[in-house]
């Protein structure tokens, strides 16, 4: 079992993620069609688009779940994500939150965070690893942040939907990624929770890069600085919310011809 972490990515200057001419097809259906996208360090980017526009496929390509037929996906200085495994990509510093909250239902909240936490994740070391007090403190801090400080020993499967969403966000933060991919992060959250999520994302931006895919337009408007609109696997518009809203092609796509 070889050591993971083959690359060290330095964030902070310039572009963090660069998708270059990515195409993916499933049995003739082009899910992504020569897609190019650039995410800057510390940026908060919203990606919108109608169903089937290729949003989830794009995330799959970035996280290594789907291999593109063509194109490159560069992370940081040189790493080509299309050649790394899911685990290597995660260790390089990309965290992903799924559309449906996926947490480890049989484990406790604490254990969920423990597994996600940035650490040596090779099979051999996990057999012997013990939590240091510094790691305990970090998990405790995350618990506070996601409002589950008093529920550390609860079995994750028994949490409410909103709590699960927060736990997953907490797991993502514990991973200490440089780039966060968030697929519909506020689906199923109450207004209050949504508001808190927006605050959290805004506070993360700057030190992290975030890509948020969302249907909830109100939420997008609260957090969006720059919006990318996907349609039929390619970018049709990009810019601030006002510009995008008034783009004739976007209007056509959303309202029909």
């Amino acid at each position: 079992m070889k050591a993971a972490l083959p690359i060290e990515v330095t964030a902070g200057q310039g572009t963090v993620l660069y998708l270059d001419g990515i195409s993916v097809s499933f049995d003739g259906f082009k899910a992504l069609n020569n897609l190019s996208l650039m995410i800057d360090a510390g940026e908060l980017r919203c990606v919108i688009g109608p169903n089937g526009a290729g949003k989830t496929t794009m995330m799959d390509v970035i996280t290594g779940k789907t291999r593109p037929d063509e194109g490159r996906a560069l992370f940081g200085e040189a790493a080509d994500l299309t050649r790394l495994s899911e685990a290597e990509i995660a260790q390089a510093g990309i965290g992903r939150k799924f559309q449906k909250p996926t947490i480890f239902e049989a484990l406790s909240v604490f254990e969920n965070l423990e597994l996600a936490m940035k650490a040596d994740k090779r099979a051999r070391t996990t057999l012997l690893s013990k939590l240091s007090s510094e790691q305990h403190d970090r998990i405790a801090a995350t618990l506070t942040l996601i409002g589950l400080r008093n529920g550390a020993d609860r079995i994750a499967g028994l949490l409410s939907h909103g709590e699960k969403q927060w736990l997953e966000i907490g797991m993502l933060l514990a991973q200490e990624p440089k780039l966060l991919l968030l697929d519909e992060p506020v689906a199923g959250m109450s207004d209050h929770e949504t508001e808190r999520t927006a605050e959290l994302f805004l506070s993360l931006a700057g030190t992290h890069s975030l890509v948020v895919v969302e249907h909830d337009m109100a939420f997008i408007e609260t957090i969006a600085r720059k919006v990318t609109v996907l349609h039929e696997g390619r970018v049709i518009a990009e810019g601030d919310m006002n510009k995008v809203k008034n783009d004739p092609r976007v209007i056509e796509v959303y309202l029909g011809r």
Binding site: K65, A87, A90, T102, F104, A106, E111, L115, A123, T126
Partner: peptide, 27 residues
Amino acid sequence: SKFGRVLEAIRDAEARVMFCGYNTMHF
């Protein structure tokens, strides 16, 4: 051990474990 918890996590949501940075195949 933590290894055991990773195993349980693999049982419940393998994709998530991979996106956490574990090479599930080794486990």
